[in-house]
Design a protein around this nucleic acid. Sequence first.
DNA 1: GACAATTAAATTGCACGCAATATAAATGCA
DNA 2: TGCATTTATATTGCGTGCAATTTAATTGTC
Lengths: 155, 155
Amino acid sequence: MRTSLNASDPREDPLRLDRQLCFQFYAASNLIGRLYAPVLARLNLTYPQYLVMLVLWEEDGQSVGAIGKRLHLDTGTLTPLLKRMETLGHLVRQRDREDERRVRVSLTASGKALREEALHVPEIMTRGQDLEELDALRRTLASVVEALKGGKAQA
Amino acid sequence: MRTSLNASDPREDPLRLDRQLCFQFYAASNLIGRLYAPVLARLNLTYPQYLVMLVLWEEDGQSVGAIGKRLHLDTGTLTPLLKRMETLGHLVRQRDREDERRVRVSLTASGKALREEALHVPEIMTRGQDLEELDALRRTLASVVEALKGGKAQA
DNA sequence: GACAATTAAATTGCACGCAATATAAATGCA
DNA sequence: TGCATTTATATTGCGTGCAATTTAATTGTC
């Protein structure tokens, strides 16, 4: 008695939405962004802007390119995003004197101060979750992302 | 000799980018979209449009709301997206006679025919990967998405 | 049957993402 | 030095995502 399914079984259909790993990433990413939005709105940040702040809080004064490399974003996304953040007063953009091609992005005093408020964010977003489990998942996904960077499909 | 880390250790910083599970989802989702783009371009589809096709290939003639529920997208995203797909000739949008509030989305002949070409896509994207492993990850992420739908942070 | 409440889409406005192209500065090399 | 190549950022154009609002049809209630 075989337990495998024949070709006409819809569960075998390779195009079923539920079978696509890519869709789980897509759905999760969108849903996560929606959950962060109201929390970050209190800091006057969108989710991608929050990521930029995380990068700058680690090391201030990085170039646009360095930030983009970290977040896997190009200048087409970052330049206007950073300009909006500059208008909001979180940071300043200035040409590097050493190499005029570069633009260094530096936090303002209020941008630095915002870090204190942001310290609550991870706690709020993971409240009630099993932290060990989340960390295991994070490590798994980190290796997936690493493979994706190399151009491997993986989804 | 203690192995735990003190508060000043940067690895303990809750705001480190590398520690954010949310970022792994964000990065993976963006990178996946970028990998699919050239493959789907041959079918004249963007990645979100491909997802709509997956939904319609499963069941044709669904309402905008039903498609949105499946993909976790609202009409603000779907209406213009579906209009573009209609222009491209993949589908048609028509008011439901039974309930004039609804718009039914139906595949055209070419939209249905496109399914044959799309059959290669999952294979192309997962080539060289351990399918068992990908499926295990898919199931894990499906449960994460399920929790996120309920509003639980989880990231 | 009137009419408030609900439901389904569309619209508006704004912020991403990203490919392709443009611009300008630095580098390399004959 | 002169000039092609490379590197860093900006710009353009298009397609999402999503909150908030609007419009129109249906349902529920008296």
